[in-house]
Design a protein around this nucleic acid. Sequence first.
DNA 1: CATAAACCTATCAGATAAATGGGTTATATC
DNA 2: GATATAACCCATTTATCTGATAGGTTTATG
Lengths: 143, 143
Amino acid sequence: MLVSTKGRYALRVLADMAEHRAEGYIPLKEIARRQGISEKYLESILKALVKNGLLTGLRGKGGGYKLTYAPEQYTVWDVLRLTEDSLSPVACLEDGAVPCQRAAVCPTLSMWQGLDKVIRDYLKGITVADLVRPEAGAGDYII
Amino acid sequence: MLVSTKGRYALRVLADMAEHRAEGYIPLKEIARRQGISEKYLESILKALVKNGLLTGLRGKGGGYKLTYAPEQYTVWDVLRLTEDSLSPVACLEDGAVPCQRAAVCPTLSMWQGLDKVIRDYLKGITVADLVRPEAGAGDYII
DNA sequence: CATAAACCTATCAGATAAATGGGTTATATC
DNA sequence: GATATAACCCATTTATCTGATAGGTTTATG
């Protein structure tokens, strides 16, 4: 499993917020209800997005969350790297990974690097705006 | 993490066996030593490969394991699907997954399906023979 | 001042990954 | 046939991560 529920929920929530962005600040409670996600769990997901500026939160009555930028500005990759500990397909390619002694002679390393790139390129090529395009359906994304 | 150590080890072992396939049956002990993997753990990995016919085991003195087919016959995908519980990038696309109620309206589903295909196509396009090509290096695999 | 809502910290339960341990059966050689 | 070798089989443990929960604090509005 490359992407956890955390990342999947985050994308669904951003898509939800993109669709409702005309309404201004939207309370977490409302998003959680619409998306069928526990409020508390959702809170922990949005936290990372707010901290990194993708979402803007406003406290108090009438507050909530809204997208900081236009939906076209968020690639799927941008979102997932904030919610997932790692998007590397294998442990050896992770950020803080202890450098592998066998790297120089490993017959599989470049194959993994290629997979990593294929995944990254794909995810960087899709934005939240693409997700909410009403016509979007299977077959759109390089299938 | 899409691919666990189990899958990574399996590929390294197959590459190892492809390089030494002229030597006939190779004892697990030898492979484990060459690859720096615990014998017991390696045993559990090879089990799945033998059961599915990718490897052939021979017991007793002079026994060991060998490739059943030529290295060109094993795609990386073939190997990984035997060692990994799932190669789906997200839970919703897994084999035994409970069908998602939101599937019909999910804004991210087709994006995940596209990712799944990108990964699968990449892994199906590389064989064990490619891994052991002496000239192989970063830049070979669609990078 | 009451209410709504984001924000913060900690904890827990369950699943999965990674590895280990101890035995049994088959084959070759002496 | 005895012995050594090596695959095969089953069960258990340990550690890590995911998913989720709980309770409290701060900030803004009316």
